[in-house]
Design a protein around this nucleic acid. Structure first.
Lengths: 246, 246
DNA sequence: TGGCGGCGGGCCGTATACAATCGATGACGG
DNA sequence: CCGTCATCGATTGTATACGGCCCGCCGCCA
């Protein structure tokens, strides 16, 4: 392995990892690595299109390619990375159609979830949600864009969890991750999706038990995000030379 | 590999596979194996709790454990198999809570999908759906329970696909798979979930564009299935000796 | 000078080998 | 006779080795 050969970065990273994720010795380690990569993608620290070479990741995290492959496949199943048969893994670059579908799905699910949440919401839950919203605004103001993105997604995810329905919560979680990716590609710079005050307002509505209003609010909220996307197809493939020079 | 050493069963099975799954040479092979295992689980040919040993599967399909592991992990992410850390894989045995959540999720999503489907439904689509419903009834009458289960799930999946929203369709697909597993555990024998005429009736409503009716019908349909489950906890863990002998 | 074909390196895909761990069985002691 | 402990077998988890494909570079030819 590179553990001894390429000592400098390899073992240093590995040690840091062992310390950070706790991870003990064995099984949890992979989970930690998975989370780290996932976070990096969701927070736009790894940009869409970025290549993820197995060797490089294996060396950075101090494990062998076997474990990395497992993680990459898992991420591929969530549409966060794309696995091209013999070209390796890269951060997914969602298409416009995917973007539309994802946001349509979110509207359908998250809106319908609001009544359940409103009914089950306890004061402690509301407090946590408000804290998330507050942290998000602070991060945004402090210029910590990565953190803000992460917190915004967490708000929506927590909301879905409060419905008490695990499959739906998980589904929303994945949709949020993909949304983050979509914003990375099509989002207008500086304007990262959710208007921060929206989240506060939504909590207020839910606390008051105004289900109908909460549903409508969520609908508007998501539509606003979707509308803020710049629908300009990245001139990635087929640069349309003929159209340009014709 | 066992290809040369353990010739007898190994190569014979491998050859059969190469012939059956078509699978060409390389990449598609795993996909075929995945589908086969998945089908076996959904059709109740592999019952919940059944152990899936890597070596055995590797030998049966004529590939090495590496590929099998990948497949098992994928199935685990869909909750079709359970991966116990050092005990290997087994067909999942859903809990009552999971069952409730899955059906609740299906009601939320599938019902809301009906209007979309009704609006996009083309004659050709309706015909396909009717064929599925017919085949299902025939299979049921012919005693081919596995086939009937498969077709019933396919009906719901196809319906979701017709919404035109890929993420939602995929979500429904997974929920249907899990539902099949749930029926295997909690379903009353002989009564496998969907009343077969229900599906025909639903297509009729959709063709007529009666969205509201279709939504309500789907709701009743799913509630009926859920209600048909025998909610007797398998005396698997905590047999409640105290309650029995107390 | 520009296009084309051969060639080498990098990287992925698969298989195999090794090590560690857990469960079961059998023996021993109380 | 029952409970406990140790050893053995089985099975998974991880790492490594090898083979193949694709891409990019370089030399050759028109």
């Amino acid at each position: 392995m590179a553990k001894s050969a390429n000592a400098a970065s390899g073992s240093a990273e590995a040690k840091r990892n062992r310390g950070a994720g706790k991870a003990g010795d064995g099984a949890e380690r992979h989970e930690t690595i998975y989370q780290q990569i996932r976070e990096a993608i969701v927070e736009h620290r790894l940009k869409p299109g970025a290549r993820l070479r197995e060797d490089a990741l294996a060396e950075v995290f101090g494990v062998s390619r076997t474990g990395i492959r497992k993680i990459l496949q898992r991420l591929a199943l969530e549409y966060l990375v794309t696995l091209t048969p013999r070209r390796g893994a890269s951060v997914s670059r969602p298409t416009i159609e995917e973007a539309r579908d994802v946001f349509a799905a979110r509207q359908l699910v998250e809106c319908q979830l609001m009544p359940w949440v409103a009914r089950r919401l306890k004061p402690a839950d509301a407090r946590v949600l408000r804290e998330l919203a507050t942290s998000e605004r602070q991060a945004l103001r402090a210029g910590e864009q990565s953190r803000a993105i992460q917190l915004s997604a967490q708000f929506h995810q927590r909301l879905a969890e409060l419905s008490g329905n695990t499959p739906l919560a998980e589904f929303v979680e994945r949709l949020c991750s993909r949304s983050s990716l979509i914003l990375a590609v099509y989002g207008a710079s500086g304007h990262l999706g959710c208007e921060s005050h929206d989240h506060d307002e939504l909590v207020t509505l839910l606390e008051a038990g105004r289900e109908e209003r909460a549903v409508a609010f969520m609908q508007r909220h998501l539509k606003a995000i979707e509308a803020s996307l710049s629908i300009e197809e990245s001139t990635d493939e087929a640069p349309d030379l003929r159209q340009i020079f014709g």
